[in-house]
Computed example of a mutant assay.
Amino acid sequence: MLLRERETPEGRLVSVCDADCLGETYEDGPVTLTVSEEFYGGDGAVEATEAEVIAGLRRAQVANIVGTEAVGVAVEAGLVDEETVLEFEETRHAQLLWL
């Protein structure tokens, strides 16, 4: 999985995706999800273990998670409710917001 963390004026933004999702575009009816190198990859992204992904998500104020494995890790860790996960073709997407 690829993990990227960055500070924004609103707090820490974390993006996580399965490595094989990077550069892909998924559709679900009229909704499109593009897993861009600019947002999920780039110089700030690192290959991460499950434990590193969970730690990164716990540090986030906002997170975007794409991929069957990455979303599964977030769900199993109790950070994302399975009922809020979106299905896009052969992948999954979830967002996390700590208030």
Rank of each mutant, 00 (worst) to 15 (best):
E47Q: 03
L97C: 09
E52H: 00
V66L: 12
E10G: 11
E69K: 13
I54A: 13
G11R: 02
T49A: 05
H93I: 04
T91A: 13
V73M: 14
E27G: 11
L79T: 04
G41S: 00
E52T: 01
A77W: 00
A60W: 01
V71D: 11
L97G: 08
V46K: 14
H93V: 02
E82A: 15
E76M: 05
F88L: 10
E10V: 06
G42I: 05
V73P: 06
A48C: 04
F88P: 06
G67L: 09
T32K: 12
R6N: 10
E38Q: 02
E89N: 09
V73S: 15
L57R: 03
P30T: 13
S36C: 05
T34Q: 01
D18G: 01
A77M: 01
R12P: 06
S15D: 07
A94D: 10
V66N: 14
L13K: 02
P9G: 09
L13C: 02
A74L: 08
A63K: 12
Q95M: 13
T68K: 15
A77L: 04
E5V: 10
G29V: 10
D81I: 01
I54N: 09
A19Q: 04
L33P: 01
G29H: 00
E10I: 07
G11C: 03
V75A: 07
M1K: 03
Y26W: 07
E83I: 09
A70G: 13
V73C: 14
